[in-house]
């Protein structure tokens, strides 16, 4: 086994995993840099959770290999497990126990010394903002609070890598924000995070690099900006004008500004990488022609568009 470059903490090499005739993971390779948040973005059934289960050693790959901190899960599973914290998609906690009792149990499984564990529990409860509720049974918590304890339970042994499987599913916007803050703080502390989600907003906000998954494959990878530029994704500037649309279209096209009139929306649509620059270009022309603008709309390009362009389908079912 060749050692990984020092900057790489985790590497997956052409992983394959099938369940009967379904190829859940079909030749996925990825490298995660030390201290980064890497996002696996894709619709339900894309293979994100299977990837995470393979990395967490819960599943064994049919083919391919995983190297984490130069260790192989097949050769040193216990050591690998000690390096990782896993936040499962389900709230995998005991509802009848208090948050503190839950954390003590899960931390104890990683052989954290009792004194250190007590400190770690205090620290993580503070991190997730639930210290005041620590002795209440978990069944009295809201969904968002349970999610935060679900994250806390994975942090008690100070893992080097945190695997998070859709940690905000079913969470209200306020709690979701709280979860994001926790993740950002963990990253500031130097933790490497592998984050799976089908919410492109989350991937855009949190992840430095994103692997877009579909049908068990990573179909694109890079930073948000890289992905947008790689697939020539442009923003859309929409204008409603009090003039003959055909005239304006030919006027702008003659000036080298591509645009088209969308009859259903009764608006002129101009694809552009830079909305502000395009507006500055167009407004003087229209003003000179005494064409008034009754409405301006902008539609910013996002990963949803990247995914749409790559697969012809949306990230989430509408």
């Amino acid at each position: 086994m060749n050692p990984l470059p020092p900057s790489i903490i985790l590497q997956a090499q052409t992983l394959h995993k099938s369940f009967d005739s379904i190829h859940a993971v079909n030749g996925v390779s990825l490298s995660i840099k030390r201290g980064e948040i890497y996002g696996l973005l894709g619709p339900n059934g894309a293979g994100k959770s299977t990837m995470l289960h393979l990395i967490s050693t819960l599943l064994q790959p049919d083919k391919g290999k995983i190297i984490i901190e130069n260790l192989s899960p097949t050769k040193a599973p216990a050591a690998i497990k000690m390096l990782m914290g896993v936040v499962p998609q389900e709230i995998a906690l005991y509802e009848d126990l208090s948050a503190r009792e839950n954390l003590a149990f899960w931390g104890g499984l990683y052989r954290v010394q009792p004194d250190l564990l007590r400190q770690q529990i205090d620290k993580t409860l503070e991190l997730v903002g639930l210290k005041e509720r620590q002795n209440d049974p978990l069944r009295t918590y809201s969904g968002g609070m349970k999610r935060r304890i679900n994250i806390a339970a994975a942090l008690l042994h100070n893992p080097k890598i945190l695997l998070m499987d859709e940690p905000t599913v079913g969470v209200d916007p306020q709690s979701r924000n709280h979860v994001f803050e926790v993740i950002e703080q963990l990253q500031r502390q130097g933790m490497t995070i592998l984050y799976t989600t089908h919410y492109m907003e989350e991937a855009e906000r949190l992840c430095e690099r994103i692997g877009i998954m579909d049908n068990g494959r990573i179909i694109a990878e890079g930073t948000v900006e890289e992905l947008k530029s790689q697939f020539a994704i442009e923003n859309i500037l929409s204008l409603q004008l009090n003039a003959k649309q055909e005239y304006v279209v030919s006027l702008l096209n003659d000036l080298g500004i591509g645009c088209k009139y969308i009859t259903e929306k009764k608006s002129l649509q101009i694809p552009t990488r830079d909305i502000r620059h395009t507006l500055c270009q167009i407004l003087p022309i229209l003003s000179k022609q005494e064409i008034a603008i009754s409405r301006i709309d902008t539609q910013t390009a996002d990963l949803e568009h990247v995914f749409l362009q790559l697969t012809g389908k949306r990230l989430r079912d509408q």
Partner: peptide, 13 residues
Amino acid sequence: EKGTMNRLLMAPF
């Protein structure tokens, strides 16, 4: 059924 089994299986034992 509740998912705690998977979490237990991911622990180092």
